[in-house]
């Protein structure tokens, strides 16, 4: 294995480690939401610091590899993709951090009927699975798996689209829950962005492996 191959292998491992941290933030965030566990939510906020550190380290390593090896072709595409995946992953970490802070700031346990009527738990599970699948696509270098994300993200978009109506209907019956309902709406908006960031990552994986730029193209062209 050449020195560059070794550097790229280590870089990929760093990205996977960061991915695992971000995934754990989402999983713990869901558990904190369901069990109204503020300690777990605080743990998510703590993990965010490690995610930020990982982002800086990956950026620096990419810069060093560019400077020392002047990579071309597939190696160049991998580095360009990693730089963008790094940013997107950090944003997913920020989103998980934001959700955790909302849970910490909420006074009372979320009402089960509110969670059920807004489908937020299903949405949360789907967001976590999307992050798991896109990680698998990166590790296995599987563009078919990466393309599957575009379809899965539609589910998150759909829940996000109907969220206003569902929350409004809920508040007509239980207007005193307005604080909780607004927090749930805010979490739904954030989870929808997890889907968008994952789509961006999928686009980068496809660029790295197939040298195709599918950004700003229609679903059919992908």
């Amino acid at each position: 294995m050449s020195k560059l191959d070794n550097e790229l292998k280590l870089l990929k491992e760093e990205v996977v480690n960061m991915w695992t941290l971000v995934h754990s933030q989402l999983v713990k965030g869901l558990s904190a939401l369901l069990n109204f566990d503020k300690d777990l939510a605080r743990e998510v906020v703590m993990i965010e610091k490690r995610v930020n550190g990982a982002e800086l380290k990956i950026d620096r390593d990419c810069e060093n590899i560019f400077a020392i090896y002047s990579p071309v072709a597939v190696d160049l595409r991998l580095l360009l993709a990693v730089l963008k995946i790094n940013t997107n992953l950090e944003r997913i970490g920020d989103i998980a951090d934001g959700i955790a802070k909302l849970i910490i700031d909420t006074d009372n346990c979320f009402k089960p009927e509110l969670l059920e009527s807004t489908k937020i738990v299903e949405m949360y599970h789907e967001a976590i699975q999307i992050v798991e699948e896109i990680l698998a696509a990166f590790e296995k270098e599987d563009t078919a798996l990466a393309r599957g994300i575009f379809k899965r993200d539609e589910f998150l978009d759909e829940i996000n689209r109907t969220a206003n109506e569902l929350i409004t209907n809920y508040l007509k019956n239980v207007p005193q829950d307005i604080d909780q309902a607004l927090n749930i709406l805010s979490i739904i908006r954030r989870l929808e962005r997890v889907g968008d960031q994952s789509e961006n990552i999928a686009e980068e994986i496809i660029f790295y492996l197939e040298a195709k730029v599918i950004k700003h193209t229609s679903r059919k062209e992908r």
């Binding site: 050449s2 560059l4 191959d5 990579p71 071309v72 072709a73 597939v74 160049l76 595409r77 040298a211």
Partner: peptide, 17 residues
């Protein structure tokens, strides 16, 4: 050629493999 070579041998050569 330097960003997306079509042949595996070209890719291996320009990436120093």
């Amino acid at each position: 050629m330097f960003t997306n070579p079509k042949d595996k041998r070209t890719q291996n050569y320009i990436t120093g493999r």
